[in-house]
Nucleic acid binder design. Structure first.
Lengths: 342, 342
DNA sequence: GTGAAAGCGCTAACAA
DNA sequence: TTGTTAGCGCTTTCAC
């Protein structure tokens, strides 16, 4: 690793030049308002002249105050997470925190490693997606004394701070919606079903609603691939042939759903008369697809991100605040790809 | 801010329990292979028993080795950046680095702030998107002694390490392609034109190619909005009416392009006979849109991300390595939305 | 509002 | 391969 040369300009140098004590400079750098205007000006002049950069590493080392935060998600590239990360970054960076990110691609072991690595930096707060982790991951987090915000999902009870949705419930409502809109045989299209715990939860809810109505769910687990659109499209006709009478599909993401929509159009399958398609995530494009717009489950992700960021800040600033459980709710947005429920 | 309690278990405690010296523990924690197997086992046992977490802050403070890296982009939510970040995170975290991210939404002043904040943490390397920055931003980076990888764009000469594309050239080639495929009147659809410097560069190249052929470019700057798909769609007909004879559009992203494609379909505009549409970024969905797939400029973003990450690691590990300029190239992918060039 | 003194937890030399 | 020693740059008392 690159050897960092010893810091060129340090706080003491600024103090010397400004003819004040180091502790005054330290105060000024962190809380400018706590220093008299006159002294502040002198110090600022010295800082500018020397090009001093405040050393956060030394600062945090000494003072025990952390001004970094971390967020751990399965995937950064997934549009739904990237939007959330974007918003969290915006909020916490405006409050003076540096944001670290880690992703683990739905591997609980990788997640454990990522948590371990993050704890070594003692961030002020950690936001982690999902409720299911390796036992040792949970233990590490709990022992660390670092506050955790569980996001995305509000199931499970490892942490008192949770912002997100009950995915089992989402799945249940989705099935309900499709049944009420007239579907007689339903499938659940997903990918990485083995790894994606939230997708499993939604499927559980989906199944519960179906069996309550005497229906049998079909699962299609789209093989892992470089391009989910291609993979999804290639499975539609096969599935329709194999599962005769299939007239409704609930997808694990709008990417899958819009791919199916495109394939249905190409193959002249009437949507929604012959086939209803319901997405998940309500991507920005979904409302504006042609010829059919895509019905989808909107997760209030922006609201979730805002609430998560807010809670992160609050937990960082206020020791006593333990967080709370916020169900941000969801909404099934009916568009062209599904019939209206009767 | 939350007051971190003094560290419960420290390296010295581990050393005491394992009956070795602190420096041996330190060595073991960082380079396990440099300690004898026997001693290593003792130390590991002590670490496990005490639940010791290595303090990277103290480590970095003392030793001057940084094991964090930072990446600065205009936007995290933009699919093209989120994929790049994902890949960089994967690579550098596998090499033991923590990745910080910052975004500035195309504001050079915000970028400057973000750079300042990041420098305070003295990361091992900084990757920054784009070649244009405030002069003081460049100065800060250069004075910091921290290696910088300029990514996304290889124009400009502030830093010897650059990975990306020549966006002026991309714009030129795009125009060339559309002219050769028969377009007589071309428009450039973009958004945030004032802020997005790369979009401007592409437009410059685009214009250069047009004027060389005696054509006049039209620019449509889509107003800032919450949903680019909606905003793009709503501008197509207006533009076609206003700019009679318009028969080709080069878009600043595949999001805009696919929205126009949808709108064209809805309005029964023949694509590509009446109107050619060329995207930028080659989103995963673009090849699989129906009824027309979208022609687009593929930027080899995955390759760019890989090269960037590789260079970041190399610059971190090897003091002497100054980086290099890598043009990852691009490819215009002809699909249904454009005619074949004659 | 400002200054003096002590020490945070670790690593880098060096020595053994 | 392991131990000893010194000190990184800052913040935090506690004075004044």
């Amino acid at each position: 690793m690159r050897q960092r040369s010893r810091q060129a300009v340090k706080l003491d140098d600024v103090a010397n030049l400004a003819k004040v004590s180091p502790s005054t400079v330290s105060l000024f750098v962190r809380y400018p308002e706590k220093v008299s205007v006159k002294t502040g000006k002198k110090i600022q002049a010295a800082i500018d002249e020397l090009g001093y950069v405040h050393n956060k590493i030394a600062s945090q080392f000494t003072g025990g105050r952390s001004s970094s935060m971390a967020v751990i998600v399965p995937s950064i590239a997934n549009i739904i997470f990237s939007r959330v990360i974007q918003q969290i970054e915006r909020t916490v960076s405006a409050a003076g925190y540096q944001l670290s990110i880690a992703s683990h691609d739905h591997s609980l072991d990788k997640e454990e490693e990522q948590v371990k690595a993050i704890l070594q930096w003692s961030p002020a707060v950690i936001a982690i997606a999902g409720a299911d982790h390796n036992p040792s991951t949970v233990k590490m987090l709990q022992n660390s004394g670092i506050p955790v915000v569980q996001m995305w999902q509000i199931e499970g009870s490892h942490f008192p701070a949770q912002v997100g949705n009950d995915h089992t419930h989402v799945g249940f409502q989705a099935a309900q919606f499709m049944i009420e809109s007239g579907c007689k045989k339903l499938a659940y299209f997903t990918t990485r079903f083995k790894e994606d715990i939230r997708a499993q939860k939604r499927y559980q809810g989906f199944t519960a609603a179906l069996t309550a109505t005497g229906l049998q769910p079909v699962v299609v687990d789209i093989p892992r691939t470089d391009n989910i659109y291609q993979a999804s499209r290639s499975l539609l006709m096969k599935t329709l042939v194999k599962e005769r009478g299939l007239d409704g599909i609930f997808c694990s993401s709008d990417a899958i759903a819009s791919a199916l929509l495109m394939e249905a159009f190409d193959k002249r399958i009437q949507v929604p008369q012959q086939l209803s398609i319901l997405g998940f995530g309500d991507f920005p494009a979904s409302a504006f697809l042609a010829p059919y717009s895509l019905s989808s489950v909107n997760l209030n992700a922006d609201n979730m991100a805002a609430k998560t960021a807010e809670m992160m800040l609050k937990m960082s600033e206020d020791n006593a605040y333990q967080g709370e459980i916020v169900d941000v709710g969801f909404e099934i947005i009916p568009r062209d790809s599904t019939n209206l429920p009767f």
